[in-house]
């Protein structure tokens, strides 16, 4: 499979649930209440419990590693969280190739809510194997 600027990665749609947030809280060891306690989340002016930023990062990481497979290795991966996402709503992970310089390939990646708003944006660089 050739790699060209502008090419889109096969999209990955996730369906996070409150149960998954609890599962992730345990696996990461992040027990901040905004991810599982509705009353607490509302007390700090959130609409309800929200996804961990790093869970969204993990989804975007999967987008990249699913696409890359064993054709190369991930060198850098960066995400910025621009908006909150709630469980019970689909989360679409998308990406596109932005640069190809020899074996080094640059990607932009983003996560969209169901209204198409990019709540997480990021970049990745990969080094393709020869």
């Amino acid at each position: 499979m050739s790699v060209q600027v502008g090419q889109e990665l096969p999209e990955l749609v996730k369906h996070p649930t409150t149960r998954q947030l609890v599962q992730y809280a345990g696996a990461q060891g992040d027990f901040y209440e905004i991810h599982y306690d509705q009353a607490y989340a509302k007390s700090v002016a959130l609409p309800g419990v929200i996804l961990h930023g790093l869970l969204k990062a993990a989804f975007l990481g999967q987008l990249v590693t699913d696409w890359l497979g064993d054709r190369g290795r991930l060198s850098t991966f960066e995400v910025s969280y621009r908006g909150v996402d709630m469980p019970g709503h689909p989360y679409r992970c998308r990406g596109r190739i932005t640069s190809v310089d020899g074996a080094n390939v640059g990607l932009e990646v983003w996560g969209e809510d169901e209204n198409g708003k990019r709540t997480t944006v990021g970049t990745a660089t990969v080094e393709m194997s020869s």
Binding site: Q20, Q23, L54, A58, Q62
Partner: peptide, 21 residues
Amino acid sequence: KRFVDAIGDPNPRWRQEVPPT
């Protein structure tokens, strides 16, 4: 295993190697 189950990434590669985050 608990971590990859939590993020929902079924890639068998993550049985031996750790995923990006």
